[in-house]
């Protein structure tokens, strides 16, 4: 079967290397032929191999699972690997690195450093004084509660909610929707012994649960469709009573 020639598309990417003297931010246009099912992963890989071996971007799983490839596509943050070119009828895609994170180069930003700091800040782990005896039966968990924990554990730390967040622009130390969701996740986990008071100590301020202005672009853009609106509202209601 032969493949019909695809349309010509234009990918315009921001290029800038802050570590090289004299480098200035600029948009560089790449014109290429669209192939069936082409995603930004395929397009950017092609650009690097055939047009510009110096273009930096991050992909790992290229399947929407690892959260590496968040970038701003025509003004909206999205996972590049799940961005289908065919969804852009004009055939023009303008790519920028996500704001709110330290720029490494071109489309690559340092989400890892930010997420680790957030994880430490909200103590993103099970707190439990009892050492589990792993030779014995596991403790039972209500299947519904396990499912509910899993739902909130689906966050992939891609940073899209942070890049979408108006509060983050005003408050550089805001833990972001990702951080608040993380607290909500441990709050529901029966293995975690922390109380509402303990969580209040972690996020009971304007860099935490009381900082959110409820603009909710986070929920609009979350590629995992996490219930950020409900969970932030729930946590705020729960923690405001402790204020």
């Amino acid at each position: 079967m032969s493949i019909a020639k695809g349309r010509e598309i234009t990918i315009s990417a921001l290029k800038y290397n802050p570590r090289v003297k004299g480098s200035k931010p600029e948009f560089v246009d790449y014109k290429l032929e669209e192939t069936p099912g082409m995603t930004l992963f395929i397009a950017l890989t092609k650009i690097r191999e055939e047009y510009d071996p110096d273009l930096s971007f991050d992909f790992v799983c290229r399947a929407g699972i690892c959260g590496s490839c968040g970038m701003v596509v025509n003004g909206k943050p999205a996972l590049a690997c799940r961005t289908l070119i065919s969804n852009y009828p004009e055939g023009k895609l303008k790519l920028m690195p996500m704001p709110a994170f330290e720029l490494i180069k071109d489309l690559s930003v340092n989400t890892g450093k930010w997420m680790d700091a957030m994880s430490v800040k909200v103590e993103s782990w099970i707190v439990n004084n009892e050492e589990v005896d792993i030779t014995k039966m596991e403790s039972k968990v209500d299947p519904d509660v396990a499912d509910e924990t899993f739902e909130l554990d689906r966050c992939i730390e891609c940073g899209i909610c942070v890049a979408s967040c108006g509060t983050k622009l005003m408050r550089p130390d805001f833990v972001g929707p990702v951080g608040l969701n993380r607290v909500a996740r441990f709050e529901v986990d029966p293995h975690d012994e922390r109380t509402a008071e303990d969580f209040y100590e972690l996020i009971g301020d304007d860099n935490g649960i009381f900082g959110c202005m409820s603009l909710l672009a986070c929920e609009d853009h979350c590629p995992k469709h996490l219930p950020l609106q409900n969970k932030i509202a729930y946590l705020r209601r729960k923690l405001v009573s402790l204020r």
């Binding site: 782990w125 099970i126 439990n128 589990v132 792993i134 030779t135 014995k136 039966m137 596991e138 403790s139 039972k140 968990v141 209500d142 299947p143 396990a146 499912d147 924990t149 899993f150 554990d153 441990f186 986990d189 293995h191 975690d192």
Partner: peptide, 18 residues
Amino acid sequence: PKAIRELAGWGVPWTRVR
């Protein structure tokens, strides 16, 4: 089996028997 039980204690939300 010990690994999976350790992970349960570390918060991995294993799907449970209904």
